[in-house]
Design a protein around this nucleic acid. Structure first.
Lengths: 206, 206
DNA sequence: TAGATTGTTAATCGATTAACAATC
DNA sequence: TAGATTGTTAATCGATTAACAATC
């Protein structure tokens, strides 16, 4: 229904954490879980877990808790994690290689379907099962393969211009491994994943 | 001085973003920057940048802005990013290999000094310049090399027990690449870095 | 039924922003 | 000096938590 308040980003950000924990519980054979137990596992308050879930529906049973398999399915559906997403990988350097060979993506429904680089030395060569393509071929590939997601693994200096090209080609969400902040229009999403920043957040306290 | 209110974690978390932007500005040859300009680059409000910095001192000049080189040095000092930190890497699989070869760590003062695995097939073999060690050797190495930081790149099922061993050996901060939430005592820091979670945060909106 | 736990409300807590005096 | 921008205050906004009626 229109006019409904959007779910806060910070709540959406916690859903994958819940989903991962539920998947784990399912593997361990647990059928029902209370918010209190989940809270203990995750270091999040039980009230917060219940409140977060309540944005999307009533998934639990008073006196019992949540059926693990059912709640997991619901979260997968909410996050659109119950389908396969095609992704473009930009950057065929060391990091690009590691990303292309990282198996978790495929396992979780994120499939790299093409690889790009702007280095003429690399274009035409192979990265695993992919031929490395010229960036000029991006818009066509995005259209043909219905690519909504891209992974950026280029040097920091190149990040913004690569992201601009992705946006122009119609990509809607970008996972950025480059150590740089990139700016995108409001209808495009970016998540930056930067190990050095995480380390610096911790050395502050040491 | 004792009794001073600690700086909020969320503020500390933004400092590396500022640091990275200042390093970039310095490379571009810019000598002075106003909070307003930095704000535009980072998609953060100028008031927030000034407020964040004010937790640590007065670094700017009214009417001018901040001296890029000076503020950068201050932030490096605050974050303890002006020294080299020894790190242990746990897990010599594909991901461990990629991490060991990721050059940014070394460039930013984070040096991997030893590699561990619990697979007897791997122990004694090499990963780059390192001999892969048995986890049993961890406490001694932590002591000898004054290791405060570790990087975990093991399967999700093994993550918690590896983290427990790290904590017991005296490691104070852990960068966790395993797709699992891990629990640590309050005096130990963990940052989890999980690409699939970032992707799921974005597919929600697609 | 008695016990347990949900979903939700209201209170609390904390973070962000707007505004401006101070001052370079 | 006039113009610009900081550092800081107070107001606003939003997120977390405690508590409990509803109910399985």
């Amino acid at each position: 229904m229109p006019g409904t308040k959007p779910v806060p980003d910070i709540v959406v950000g916690r859903l994958p954490i819940y989903l991962r924990a539920l998947t784990r519980l399912l593997e361990e054979g647990q059928q029902v879980v209370a918010s209190k137990e989940l809270a203990k596992r995750l270091g999040i308050s039980s009230a917060q877990i219940r409140k977060d879930l309540s944005h999307f529906g009533e998934f639990g049973k008073q006196g019992k808790g949540y059926e693990v398999a059912y709640l997991r399915d619901q979260l997968r559906s909410i996050l659109h994690a119950d389908r396969t997403w095609n992704m473009a990988l930009i950057g065929a350097g060391d990091l690009g290689h590691a990303i292309a060979h990282y198996m978790e993506f495929e396992k979780e429904g994120f499939r790299i379907v093409c690889v790009f680089d702007n280095n003429p030395q690399k274009i035409g060569r192979r990265l695993g099962k992919f031929e490395i393509l010229d960036m000029a071929a991006l818009p066509q590939k995005v259209r043909e393969q219905e690519i909504k997601l891209a992974v950026v693994a280029v040097p920091a200096e190149a990040a913004q211009s690569v992201v601009d090209e992705l946006v122009r080609a119609g990509v809607k969400a970008i996972l950025n491994y480059a150590p740089a902040t990139v700016v995108v229009p409001p209808n495009v999403h970016v998540q930056s994943i930067e190990p050095v920043m995480y380390l610096q957040r911790m050395t502050y306290y040491l």
